[in-house]
C-alpha cells in the first residue's frame, strides 16, 4: 500500500520554483546561516542543564 497519491485534491503541498531556488541561493543562504545559528544558540542557552536546589 503506497500512500503516494495522484489525486490532485489530496496531493501534498509542493514548493514553488522561487522557494526551491532560494534554498540554494548563496547570498540568501548566507543570511539564513547567520539566522539559523542565532536560533540554535538561543536553543542551546535555553536548554542547558539546570543547577538543582540544594535540599
Amino acid at each position: 500500500m503506497i500512500a503516494r497519491s495522484q489525486n490532485l485534491v489530496v496531493r501534498p503541498m509542493k514548493p514553488t520554483r522561487p522557494t526551491v531556488f532560494m534554498r540554494v541561493l548563496w547570498p540568501w543562504q548566507l543570511l539564513r546561516f547567520v539566522a539559523i545559528n542565532l536560533r540554535m544558540t538561543a536553543m542551546i542557552l535555553k536548554s542547558h542543564h539546570t543547577r538543582l536546589p540544594r535540599a
Binding site: R23, V24, M43, S47, H48, H49, L52, R54
Partner: peptide, 29 residues
C-alpha cells in the same frame, strides 16, 4: 554533595537537529 546537583530533563531540554538532505557545499541542503 549528598545528591546530584544538576539536572537535565528531556521535558525541559530542547534539541537542535540538522537533518542532511543532500551533501554538497554548493547545492546540498
Amino acid at each position: 554533595a549528598e545528591r546530584p546537583t544538576h539536572g537535565a530533563s528531556m521535558a525541559k531540554l530542547g534539541a537542535a537537529c540538522v537533518a542532511s538532505t543532500g551533501m554538497s557545499p554548493i547545492n546540498g541542503t
